[in-house]
């Protein structure tokens, strides 16, 4: 474990806590894409079911349990508890266009053609694009509550921090995980536009608004 990865994981953890806080305090999931959240459940379940048969560490185990359970809880909040505040008519990105290609990519690119390994590859590819319905929704509405932008910033920072972690591991351990690295670069690149507006507007105290 190095500091980049630790802070990456903590940023990921923080993003989910921010999202939960936003939903609970505003009693609304306005501005949050249900499709993106459903894709995250898919990602976590596909990747972290190994917690039942592969022991890594207590840290690793607890994080996996937290990510699976919190993502399912968020779906519950959106679909049941605060259902009236969710507007499916602006959450129109076709998620199946993401899932299909990720299945195909996972069948081609994996470290071993076994069910758990293909599932792992699939989750890595799907995670890299799972934010697209959310970013698409943001693009459509052209604005976002500040708390939602903090959620997105923490979520984007998480994979971005994994990049120096991979560089560090390459030099310290001599090992590269090309599937994770390439997907991680794509994932981070998707946030570039968002981060530009976040740094130039939100962190200067202005509202997150896209130019018309």
């Amino acid at each position: 474990m190095n500091l980049f990865r630790l802070f990456g994981d903590l940023s990921h953890l923080a993003s989910i806590l921010i999202l939960l806080h936003k939903i609970q305090t505003t009693r609304s999931c306005r501005g949050i894409s249900f499709k993106t959240q459903a894709l995250y459940v898919t990602v976590f379940v596909a990747r972290y079911l190994d917690l039942f048969y592969d022991w890594v560490s207590l840290y690793n185990f607890s994080m996996k349990v937290f990510f699976i359970s919190s993502s399912i809880y968020i779906l519950y909040l959106m679909k049941v508890r605060f259902r009236p505040t969710h507007d499916p008519s602006i959450d129109t990105f076709r998620a199946e266009y993401l899932v299909g290609p990720c299945v195909v990519l996972a069948l081609i690119f994996n470290y071993k053609f076994t069910f758990p390994e293909v599932l792992w590859s699939f989750s890595i590819f799907l995670e890299s694009v799972a934010i697209l319905p959310q970013l698409f929704m943001l693009q459509r509405t052209g604005e976002a509550e500040t708390i939602t932008t903090h959620y997105l910033a923490a979520l984007g920072a998480y994979r971005a921090l994994y990049i120096p972690n991979w560089i560090y591991r390459y030099f310290s351990e001599g090992v590269v995980d090309p599937i994770a690295v390439i997907a991680g670069l794509v994932q981070t690149a998707l946030y570039v536009d968002f981060f530009y507006v976040y740094f130039t507007k939100v962190l200067q105290g202005q509202k997150f608004e896209l130019p018309a």
Partner: peptide, 10 residues
Amino acid sequence: QGTARAKDEL
């Protein structure tokens, strides 16, 4: 040395 999946990463 080489390429491998980092099993300890989340």
